[in-house]
Design a protein around this nucleic acid. Structure first.
Lengths: 348, 348
DNA sequence: GCTTAGCACTCACTTGATAAGAGTGCTAAC
DNA sequence: GTTAGCACTCTTATCAAGTGAGTGCTAAGC
């Protein structure tokens, strides 16, 4: 059986309506809404065909029809129209993301918050893996007699500090010398290289005082680098699911919450996804617990190279057009903001 | 009417049982459980007295009795026994909080996570207000031709960085000079003084290149300081409320979530609370939306001075003894970890 | 005078039956 | 191919009756 133009229009109407209302839609209502001069009975016949083809289901004999995952897929691929973001929203996004060129983490967190506010869905963002990020320099700053701050800056401009407690006293000169030596040694190497290739462990010095200092600092340096390699997961709008009828059932809500609360697992799922804007609908998701959900993710770039991800998770009934546009716009903005070496002047 | 020893024991049993089960408790059950050789009828009489005195209510004529806020207050003040944390939990806490002397924010966030895991409640933590925190030094670090990192370190050892985009080129010497000049000017002053007393605005220089640099940097410096004065709120275990029978009703859960999602308002409420371990039960809370909840907060200290807060929010039916002990233990640990100038050697 | 057994009473909750409503599927006519 | 009509299905709401937990009161017992 072929998908006639009329079938497509009917299907589109059903998907569109269901996305808005979350209610199964019947032939009578649809007949009125479509305004094509076809009777409910005809629509019933068409619906019946569509159901046979796997685009529709109905929860029980006498409920209206509901789109299947396959229908959403068709909708996303062919039927969906480009959604143009309102100028107002664009402005909000640009403003919130670029106003303060603050630390990466904070910006990404902002982005997640923004995304959940604009979509009314649960949003998430993961920071880029820094495996291929190159170290730019290491700096030790004295704070007081027993505390030193270790600062690591990468090529992409990411800064990390860790406070280190030093048991025995140290001299500022040694600290500053150590900073220089370590920077000299590690500059230009990737973080994972520094960690994995035993470079740290081979770092020795023959000056007595320095070597004691190195001993204290080494574990902190290692764990800081390890931390930097970690991918952070931010989430926001988790409680938005309660305004979604699908999750009015406390049991379902719980399952959803449990799923996204397994942060480690969830992060892995996100990391594994391909780059670019990716939509996975219901059954297309590998994970059992996500079979009821759709996931939209997009990637942003730091310094044109490092890649992080941003996205939403929600019911399969989702405003795919709108959400996709919002995510794309936000990721574009982040990439723009963190285009560090591009050197492009921003005109304000 | 007086609270006889027997009344107290009965009340204690009711509170204890209700904290565990969340079910109204009847006279028969209680008679068996108490094992004092008094019949249900007697207990009914006592219960009736207790109800008259305001310690109990019952939701409807033929339900068991339920403790009132007043009963919880009595329980917390007089009946509750000191809860001794299992050694195992103590170890977990100490380990997780002191293992990496990392940045304050991260540690506080860890603490909140830990707290919610140990109590199965919703936990929160606010970072100290830094109003009275003194600036130690300012540093500008070149990243690339158009990016500079502004780093501010306070007396208490808190470090903040912000990346600043510089439109026109700059010289490294100027940057380093500016760092020194600003540090010289601001060192020892409190953050709020620097901000409010117009000190920043009066900061001028007669060197041409420098003054251009200052212009670019000033707004960033100001907003960074402002950011540092903000109190951050962390939360964890928000979804724990779904394992609490009181919130099995989706409507109630929603109200709860809405309340704690008004982060600004919620932060204010926390900031206003007194220092030390504070328990507020149900109606004792000022905020309407919290009248169904109990709140336990405690304070931790940074450098012996700055004060942050940590606590949980949950149903009035709460394991006050256990939760209080856990919170105290965690705040003690944080205070210990961040006792910066104490100079006490830690033996490991 | 405190304690207790007994009993009527109350009220929430469950169950089953019934009715209403929405929507389909089929058939026959256009 | 399209449509009207009608029987049929299935959900949801409503109501009544039954059940059970628990109370409050009264009168008897210690």
């Amino acid at each position: 059986m072929d998908l006639s133009e009329r079938k497509l229009r009917i299907l589109q109407a059903i998907v569109g309506d269901f996305i808005r209302s979350a209610e199964p839609i019947g032939s009578r209502t649809l007949s009125k809404k479509l305004d094509m001069g076809i009777s409910p009975a005809t629509i019933r016949n068409e619906m019946s065909d569509l159901e046979e083809m796997g685009f529709l289901t109905h929860p029980h004999t006498s409920a209206g029809r509901v789109p299947s995952d396959k229908a959403y897929r068709l909708y996303v691929n062919n039927l969906m129209q480009k959604y143009e973001l309102p100028e107002e929203e664009k402005q909000i996004i640009a403003e919130k993301l670029t106003k303060n060129v603050s630390e990466l983490d904070r910006t990404i967190q902002h982005a997640a918050t923004l995304l959940s506010e604009l979509t009314n869905l649960t949003s998430f963002a993961i920071t880029p893996s820094q495996e291929s990020n190159h170290l730019r320099y290491v700096n030790f700053l004295p704070v007081d007699e027993s505390t030193v701050v270790l600062m690591i800056v990468t090529e992409s401009g990411r800064v990390t500090n860790t406070a280190i407690k030093i048991k025995t006293s140290y001299k500022e000169e040694n600290l500053s010398l150590l900073s220089k030596v370590m920077t000299y040694n590690y500059k230009g190497k990737t973080l994972s290289d520094i960690l994995t290739h035993d470079i740290i462990r081979n770092f020795e010095t023959d000056i007595e005082a320095m070597s004691r200092l190195v001993e204290t600092i080494r574990p902190n340096f290692i764990s800081t680098l390890e931390n930097m390699l970690n991918v952070d997961l931010f989430m926001d709008g988790v409680t938005n699911i309660f305004s979604i009828p699908e999750y009015n059932d406390i049991g379902k809500a719980k399952v959803f919450l449990e799923m996204i609360n397994k942060k480690k697992h969830f992060t892995d799922v996100l990391v594994r996804r391909d780059n670019g804007v990716i939509i996975t609908i219901g059954n297309e998701n590998q994970e059992d617990l996500m079979r009821d959900c759709s996931l939209i993710t997009a990637t942003y770039h730091i310094d044109g190279k490092l890649v992080g991800k941003l996205g939403v998770i929600g019911p399969t009934r989702m405003k795919y057009d709108e959400v996709t546009s919002i995510i794309e716009y936000i990721t574009d903005n982040i990439s723009q903001t963190f285009k560090i070496t591009g050197g492009e002047e921003k005109d304000e």
